[in-house]
Design a protein around this nucleic acid. Structure first.
Lengths: 78, 78
DNA sequence: CATAGGGTAAGCATATATGTCAACAATTAA
DNA sequence: TTAATTGTTGACATATATGCTTACCCTATG
């Protein structure tokens, strides 16, 4: 039995919230973050709102720009 | 200044190694894992060998099938 | 009122992850 | 040898992430 898509969406949203939380703790705007990791502000917004199923590559790029270990992006309860 | 693609590939490979390590610790074959999370064995192989830039959704599905928290997939040094 | 900053969103193009199927290699066992 | 298990790889189709542009909504500030 496989995981249902509702749970995936919930997880995506929580991941986005966690990203936003870390970004704000660094006092960066979405534009700041986008600029410092060469991603589009549109993409940052999509990720933070759980409207996209982001990739490992993007996670790595973002965590480097935020100066956090990537697993901090997963430091939340579901 | 952005992260270089060599580092991304290195990270992908390490992620794959970590996945393989966890899978083997659970005494599962790639086929076992594929079956238990309804992914293709081809996809599991591609991920474990760092030949693909996998997604959050796939990470979630795999971590559920392995009964580990998703951040365990990132418990490695780069 | 206007302007600026922060964020969201639609639309389209391009790149690529995964599904799917087939083939193949290596290992183990009979 | 043959057969089974495990894993890898190529090719193609489909789905979708991101780049990119434009436009919009708020809020604050002039």
């Amino acid at each position: 039995m496989s995981i249902d898509s509702k749970k995936i969406l919930t997880y995506q949203k929580e991941f986005g919230k966690q990203l936003k939380k870390i970004r704000l703790s660094k006092k960066m705007s979405q534009l700041d973050l986008a600029a410092s990791c060469d991603l589009e502000k549109t993409s940052i917004s999509r990720i933070e709102n759980g409207r996209t199923n982001t990739t490992l590559k993007t996670m790595i790029i973002i965590s480097e720009a935020l100066n956090v270990n990537i697993y901090e992006l997963f430091d939340f309860e579901i």
